[in-house]
Design a protein around this nucleic acid. Structure first.
Lengths: 228, 228
DNA sequence: TAGATTGTTAATCGATTAACAATC
DNA sequence: TAGATTGTTAATCGATTAACAATC
């Protein structure tokens, strides 16, 4: 019996399945096959079945999966069966956008507060979420036992903020700051580095094959030149 | 000689190397070893050397890599040697944040325009970038030969917008809409789905091991029950 | 020359895909 | 029972890591 941790790739697909199930249930679809889930998600049917099998047997052979039942199981697996308290660090445009979206549209989380150091925004509300001075973050983290934080502060402030919130008890960070942050053992960081996403996308935007073959050719030419 | 495309994992690490090199050059560091790059990036030295070797031999044995030279090479590889024109679809908080950040801080891209359908924002500027009516997007894409777009419209509008811009010539999309979008052959989509990131992070925020073993145990119990 | 570090080949590891028995 | 689809084991594929010769 393997007790190796489930891989991150698997965990990242679970919310995709959840969203599809939410949509299906809204359309009163009660049964779905792994084949159909594959069409909706873009992942293969085999992969979907294998992902789910890590956690149990949730389907019915010959029939498929009951959408409501599978949804509940996935919610339990991810840990979304109780609303998760989350704080946001940084009340800039990105922090505001994320606070709004999650406060208004994400039924699985509860945005408790946004923290900033700019007196001009402190005291305001974003979708009924208060903006508080950043110094108050540690106390609130301890009081509410906050485990999850979204960091949207500038790159040069990120490490300081992260040190502060991890010391206070935060265990999982969604980091939007374009900087590598260091965290204590046991704290999880997901980097949502939008500059890096955009730059790697640019690689694919132009004739990437031509560029590749050109570089490859240059390399071969150089090798040939050295031999002769 | 393999002419298989370079994997996406490799391409996604290149911008990380680029950022580190930018920082090193700012600090007047002229030479860096793969070992030191490993410390800065979190990737192993072997992996860094292998990534770079796909494109050529950019280092000096016994010494390391010249930061400026390597930077230039990586810029060429990604295709950042000329500023890339990019458009943004959706002038909400997220679209605004991304427009601002890239217009002001990202030297490798040129945000040409933001498109929205709300008359209240059309005609305004975001960091000197004009907000235009979304119907004008196809003409501008054709005129400027735009290949890269950032989509930040609501989920239910995403597919329509994507159909429009891909028909006009966009070949690479950074999609923030929480929806699966379908694109013609040859168009690249990177999903930056922040809800999914947040939900998978939540999995790691609480005692994921306990949860895993509990589910595993339930599964074993069920199997035992069936056998007896 | 001795020490250091690259570039590259081989070994390992892990994730995906294929196949199929189980079973509704 | 026949048809369908799951759950699981085995095979394949690809990416990472290890090892080391090349060479500055």
């Amino acid at each position: 019996m393997s007790n190796r941790a489930i891989s991150k790739s698997v965990i990242k697909r679970l919310p995709v399945y959840l969203r599809i199930l939410d949509n299906l249930i809204r359309r009163d679809v009660e049964i779905i096959s792994s084949k159909e889930l594959s069409n909706e998600s873009g992942f293969t049917a085999e992969q979907i079945r294998k992902d789910l099998a890590y956690f149990g047997a949730f389907g019915t052979r010959g029939t498929g999966y009951n959408t409501s039942y599978l949804r509940e199981k996935i919610i339990k697996i991810i840990g979304l069966d109780k609303k998760t308290d989350v704080i946001v660090l940084g009340a800039g445009h990105l922090g505001t956008a994320l606070t709004r979206y999650n406060a208004e549209k994400n039924p699985y989380v509860n945005i408790v507060a946004v923290f900033d150091r700019d007196p001009a925004v402190i005291g305001q509300d974003i979708s009924d979420v208060p903006v508080l001075p950043v110094e108050e973050a540690p106390a609130l983290i301890r009081d509410y036992q906050i485990k999850v934080a979204i960091v949207t502060v500038p790159a040069d402030e990120a490490q300081g903020v992260v040190d502060m919130i991890t010391a206070a008890g935060v265990r999982a960070i969604l980091n939007f700051a374009p900087a590598k942050i260091h965290v204590p053992e046991g704290v999880h960081v997901f980097n949502a580095d939008l500059t890096i996403e955009l730059q790697s996308l640019i690689y694919y935007s132009s004739a990437e094959d031509e560029r590749f073959y050109r570089l490859k050719q240059e390399k071969l030419d150089k090798e040939k030149a050295q031999k002769s």
